[in-house]
Design a protein around this nucleic acid. Sequence first.
DNA 1: ACGCTCACG
DNA 2: GACGTACGTGAGCGTA
Length: 937
Amino acid sequence: MSGTFGKGHHLHLIDGSAFIFRAYHALPPLTRKSDGLPIGAVSGFCNMIFKMVEDNTGPDAPTHVAVIFDKGSHTFRNDMYDLYKANREAMPEDLRPQIPLTRQATEAFNIACKELEGFEADDIIATLARQAREAGGRCTIISSDKDLMQLVGDGVEMLDAMKNTRIDRDGVFDKFGVYPDRVVDVQALAGDSVDNVPGAPGIGIKTAALLINEYGDLDALLERAEEIKQPKRRQTLIEHADQIRLSRKLVLLDDRTPLDFTLDDLEVREPDSDKLLAFLAEMEFRTLTKRVAEKMGAEMPTIEDTPALPDAPQVDDVPFDTDNYEQVGDAGTLEKWLDAIYEAGHVAIDTETTGLNEMTADLVGISLAVEPGKACYIPLIHKANRGDDLFGSDDLAEGQMDLDTCLGMLKPVLEDPSILKIGQNMKYDVKILAQVGIAMAPIDDTMLMSYAQHAGLHGHGMDALSERYLDHTPIPIKPLLGSGKSAITFDKVPLEDAVKYAAEDADITLRLWKLLKPQLHAAQVTKVYETLERPLVPVLADMERAGIKVDRDTLSRMSNAFSQKMAGLEDEIFGLAGRKFSVGSPKQIGEILFDEMSLDLPDGKKPAKGKSGAWSTGADVLEDLATVHDLPRRILDWRQLDKLKSTYTDALQNHINKDTGRVHTSYSIAGASTGRLASTDPNLQNIPIRSEEGRRIREAFVAEEGKTLVALDYSQIELRILAHIADIPELKQAFADDIDIHALTASEMFNVPLPEMTPDIRRQAKAINFGVIYGISGFGLARNLRIPRAEAQGFIDRYFERFPGIRTYMDDTKAFAKKHGYVQTLFGRRIHTPEIGAKGPRAGFAARAAINAPIQGTAADVIRRAMIRMPDAIRNLPARMLLQVHDELLFEVEQGAEEELISTARKVMEDANEPVVRLDVKLTVDAGQGSNWAEAH
DNA sequence: ACGCTCACG
DNA sequence: GACGTACGTGAGCGTA
């Protein structure tokens, strides 16, 4: 049947996304045998399409058919309401690569495949259904999405393909309590939590239908809201009238979308058997390929049965060629790249900026790569010359896109939940793009993939990874930027060089991703990567961008006070030493004390000499020496002040951001091998607290006017984890009973009843407890406690006797590390211990590190999980998370909401191990609050 | 660039 | 039997 669509014609419209999701959830996670590509949803999709083709015979068969897909995440509905669909969960990791394949499948079946930027599939379906109806034909929408039910009637029906049930006007009435023409009114009132349509609070479908049926339609209802008898209902409708009208706009489908095709283009076509079978064979669908071949009377193509070797190099064998990279200078060229990105479903991205600090750096350009060797650079604000020419202008270089135009085009892609953005150290790029209003998601990060697999084995910077995995040395940045005083920023780098350098970074990143991603599964660290590494990126980006307010005047006053004290100390020091010298020089101190003054330690010996041959003058040495002379104590005091002044009160002032008045640290996620974060520029994880003088520096970390700082820290988390992992009944019981753990240890070891415990015995036990966590040795404990080595060894022996599980844990852990080359945390994080088999002292180091890593690492995992869950948990509180200090989280909260924040955040932290790891000990969190960090802690 | 020292958990 | 040792970090300074 052909001719213009009209009476007697029957159009089938398949809701592509709904089909894919159903297929995905209905089937186990199948993968392609040869390379492990996830393929379950594609398989289900193809089977459903084929079943439809097979079933569609007889008088009711469609004459026209199309599969309609969503395109992009940003639609006109987001312009009306920016929270539209904001509750949507991210697309599952193994589904994303299957989306483009389902489009290919549709084409292979020779079925029209349609989508339209800026509109949802539902709008296209609405438009086509209207056209079919107006032309006098019939239309069946294959979907069970209730949002489409407003279209039913007058020749338009829905078909639930899974249940094989048709939904007509009566079916809609069953579901909504109204007929299709009033469905949007009911939806506007009831709202939709899945799409985040607000609706009227407290009103569901039942009540909504009741009201609409009583008043006729929504407008009449809102107009006559005063007449409603129930006071609560009346008030809700009056108060939220605007929100309800907005909700109706959101749920009302647009049946006038501009389409570049007509119904006639959708006429049913016979598939090309060669093309279809080739596609099915490529997917390695054996059964389906056979069935299709039989039905079409064609030869069954062969499907290779040999899976690729798991370790075979996966990355395409494309040589690096910097001449092949493209400079993107206009919208048309960029459009071409965006098409390629949508085709692939992923893109590697790298941002170039004017500096390394994301808070002060400006975006200079963006590079993209979609397949190995195919990369581009979009320069945005490069200067026409290097800027070192006195007469040179700061004009922009030719051939660059307008910044806003470019970002406007990129934003929908970078925020599209179906397009995966791949980067190396994505926290940097996420922060840079956040500065220009782009919330990039979802992401993958090659640095974190490497870290999840190989923590402890090697670094995870791009240069190191490229050398190691791609056997390729990236173009070094140094020659482009220069160094020292004549260094230039990237916007001054000539475009020709910039394109090569920047595009290569994206190319390398994409290749690393292709290589490292499949290895995650093999190394069994996919869970670690997906639950402990990647989700931390946006959380840390937000914390770093928030920063913490630091009061410059407080620091400045402290600096001055320190200067004065140090000047006084210097006079005393020079008097005692008999001459002037540089007090900051350990070498000169050693010469004065041990050569010129010939001082000896209390045991009559001299201290050790360091690698450079100078006397060791560390605090422990000077502390001992202080018992025989006054000078060492003065030097210790001077050093403490020098440290506080130079590292804290002076240096911190230089880190106060000019625009925000706050200090913004940067956390490295893949720095510490154990899974701990590290804080840099500045390090806010080592702000003084142990000495009273140093502790006062925390007074300079303040809450904003009208706000409070709240600190929550895990109590003894590492010892709790040790008690669990090593399975020590006495320790577990002590934590269950909230008994002072160090006192308990002392009581067990030294046979002192708890009521008779003295601070000194407790102090020794505390040192032993910490020693255990660090891989205790008699020597180390002796030095720490300043007791003879034999005595320390005696303590350790008694400890092991009392808690034999500890020794077992230590021995087992060392044996595991020797056998596997790594140890693991309770959450599966791997920490490699390559030196464990070494000879000499290095083996001792490695053994102690191996003993410590599962404990420190598990604690790190716990707080990571808490941090990842925190933003959602506190999203309705006027609070934000600012800092992490290993076992502590610091928040800033509006005054009045402190207690609510504490109870909410505490719960998240105390339950952070659940549900994947059950602990025999509870986790306990202490809380404090105040106008500055000293008070809050 | 490297070692020393010292701040934190 | 000798050797050197508590675990994990980052920053500032002096010295080469």
